[in-house]
Design a protein around this nucleic acid. Structure first.
Lengths: 69, 69
DNA sequence: TGTTATTTGGGTAATTCGGGTG
DNA sequence: CCTGTCCGAATTACCCAAATAA
């Protein structure tokens, strides 16, 4: 173990927004709604865990389950 | 800077619809039918992979392939 | 210490969702 | 079978000025 604990990479609102193809303001909305964990800087700006963002992005389409009508 | 292993460029329903000259609703139907992969925002809106859309756009109809050289 | 880009916050228009219909 | 449109509800995008980050 290091002083960093587990080298968690943090992403800025702009980075997360770019990955989801949404506005940075929308990412803030998700954080406020509790859909995304957010870490605050001492000045109040939000940072997001890359691992969590990637997990959310990976939970993509799951709708091709209906073959039979 | 790229701290992202594989950044996939995503398109909005309106952008895909514009490229195919169809209604955004039709693109949604394609996604539901499993003809197009879709990533969901945390709010439930769909995003589409630009690479996949372009591949589909580039796929000319088989009927035209009878050109002999 | 100063500059530039990003983020924050609130408010309003546009887009998308889902189901149902033609 | 495939597509376009109507509806209501929810989500997202863009406007501003001030504060924070690098």
């Amino acid at each position: 173990m290091s002083v960093h604990g587990d080298s968690e990479v943090l992403l800025t609102p702009a980075e997360v927004a770019s990955l989801f193809r949404v506005d940075p303001k929308t990412v803030t909305r998700w954080a406020k709604a509790g859909k995304l964990s957010s870490i605050r800087t001492l000045g109040g700006h939000r940072r997001y865990k890359e691992s969590e963002v990637r997990a959310l992005l990976g939970a993509a389409s799951e709708e091709m389950k209906k073959s039979d009508d």
